[in-house]
């Protein structure tokens, strides 16, 4: 009997191990699929420069860009720039998200507020973001405040649209269930509306974060001595395309990383979703 039980346990651990292996295999296969296209592109670029199809002076090959990245990394300069830029995006993102969530919730929930506020916000939304730069510099000075304000403006609109749109499209049928159980006001919002809009909210946050990374460049163009945007301007002024490329690649990597972090942080709250190709 004891033997039987033991073999059972052994079989079980073996099974769970093979499940873990197949999950790992699946993940690594996914990563492989994601990497194929960029790797082929980089190879082509390297070969093209080496073969003299492109001028290496204006289109530095990946090897040179990597060397520049490595040099920036080793001197600690890159982390300094990444840190400064990330802090700016963080504060701008928090400020923009908080104000947009409040504004979106109010205009989504109260019809009167929507009729009063929404048209003005939509008008403000259509102003090109760069148009704010001179005004923000006058208002908030050349240092951090104006940069954070500009990033916050960039984050605000996608999050605002996402929140107010999500609230407006909450299924009446689900709300009626809440009403049958005599929920109203705050409890209806907390127990029905908030969970119902959460998936759309996550998507709004993701596009807000993406715009945050775009706006930080505009913000750092308007006069910064540190940050990834400064690396771009500096690279242009001193004729260092490899530094520009290095900064661009860094933007791509941290943009993707922060987006993945946001997805990972919210995924546990969305396991209930029944969507097309979930978990694909």
């Amino acid at each position: 009997m004891a033997d039987l039980a033991e073999t059972g346990i052994k079989a079980e651990t073996k099974a769970s191990r093979s499940v873990a292996a197949s999950v790992f295999y699946g993940l690594s296969r996914q990563a492989m699929a994601a990497i194929i296209v960029p790797v082929l592109g980089l190879l082509f670029w390297e070969v093209a420069v080496a073969a003299g199809w492109f001028s290496g002076r204006l289109m530095p090959p990946p090897s040179r860009v990597l060397a520049t990245l490595w040099a920036l990394l080793k001197s600690g300069e890159l982390f300094n720039h990444i840190g400064i830029t990330t802090v700016r995006v963080f504060f701008g993102f928090v400020l923009g998200t908080v104000t947009a969530t409040i504004a979106g919730a109010v205009t989504g929930y109260f019809g009167l507020a929507r009729r009063l506020i929404d048209p003005s916000l939509q008008a403000l939304r259509s102003i090109p973001s760069i148009a704010w730069v001179p005004l923000f510099i006058l208002w908030f000075g050349i240092f951090e405040a104006s940069k954070v304000a500009l990033i916050a403006v960039g984050v605000f609109f996608p999050v605002y649209l996402g929140v107010s749109g999500a609230i407006l499209s909450v299924d009446r049928k689900i709300v009626e269930v809440g009403r049958i159980f005599r929920l109203s006001g705050v409890t209806l919002v907390r127990r029905v509306m908030m969970p119902a809009v959460f998936p759309a909210y996550v998507i709004a946050l993701r596009s807000g974060l993406g715009l945050g990374w775009m706006f930080v460049v505009a913000a750092e163009f308007m006069g910064a001595s540190e940050g990834l945007g400064y690396l771009l301007v500096d690279g242009q002024q001193l004729g260092k395309p490899d530094q520009i490329m290095a900064a661009i690649i860094t933007f791509a990597v941290i943009g993707k990383v922060t987006d993945s972090l946001l997805i990972a942080a919210t995924a546990p709250f969305l396991t209930w979703q029944d969507s097309y190709r979930r978990g694909d």
Binding site: I174, V177, R182, V192, A196, F198
Partner: peptide, 20 residues
Amino acid sequence: SQPHPLINLIFQEPRLLPWL
């Protein structure tokens, strides 16, 4: 005149809350 604790309604669709 409004939803009452002793009256309940079962709809045509289950209308379960998908997040619970």
